[in-house]
């Protein structure tokens, strides 16, 4: 019975590799983008703050699958031809970026205002305040939610299969439609995702405990 899973494992592992690729790129670029936007969202330009707030609000209010579809259809509509991976990847990056921006912004704003008052009183300018006072303290606060965010992003790469990009879940469905061994294959695939995701969950929890202790 388990044979079906074993026979098809190489194919599934190739899919897992694609999933990992996608996940790494999406999480890295998305987190960088989101961090930049999150920092800007605490800055002095009201227009920028409002624009980023709108961006976060819109993206958090629509399903990531719909964003992926938008990405898939928006590029051709603008006359650019890209493959499914780029379209879905860009869409997910924009999505992860919004959630990251909100996490980073919250973390920066949660640093005690007295810290900023003290830094300003020494004559420090905004860039130095961010670099020396806000970001070091905000980073520690932001890491657990950011790791959880990454975990979610990894799981969401599976939705790319619905839009037509080939990765682990797409491969799984192909095999099931051919062999009808749904339990073995999907449970096996769940195990693969679990192996990728669970360490991230543990990391987030471990870091959260560390934070709680030092306060």
């Amino acid at each position: 019975m388990v044979n079906v899973l074993v026979t098809n494992l190489p194919y599934l592992l190739r899919g897992a590799l694609v999933t990992l690729w996608l996940a790494v790129i999406v999480v890295t670029v998305g987190t960088l983008l989101g961090t930049g936007l999150g920092v800007l969202a605490t800055g002095r330009s009201r227009i920028l703050r409002m624009a980023i707030t709108v961006y976060i609000f819109v993206l958090r209010g629509i399903p990531v699958l719909v964003v992926m579809f938008l990405g898939y259809y928006a590029f051709p509509a603008l006359g650019v031809r890209v493959n499914a991976y780029v379209a879905v990847g860009v869409a997910q990056i924009v999505y992860v970026g919004a959630f990251t921006a909100e996490i980073v912004r919250s973390a920066i704003l949660s640093v005690h205002p007295g810290q900023v008052a003290a830094a300003k009183s020494l004559g420090m300018r905004r860039a130095a305040i961010l670099r020396e006072v806000l970001l070091p303290q905000a980073t520690r606060i932001a890491i657990p939610p950011l790791v959880n965010n990454a975990l979610t992003a990894v799981k969401q790469t599976s939705y790319a299969s619905v839009v037509g990009a080939w990765e682990l879940t797409y491969a799984a469905r192909e095999i099931v439609e051919r062999t009808l061994a749904s339990f073995q294959i999907f449970l096996g695939v769940m195990a693969i995702y679990f192996i990728i995701c669970y360490p991230l969950a543990l990391l987030a929890r471990w870091y959260e405990k560390r934070l709680a202790v030092s306060h």
């Binding site: 799981k155 969401q156 599976s158 939705y159 879940t169 799984a172 749904s182 769940m190 995701c197």
Partner: peptide, 12 residues
Amino acid sequence: MRNTPLLVQIYL
């Protein structure tokens, strides 16, 4: 449940 995609669970 928390560490596997909902999509795969639905397929299952």
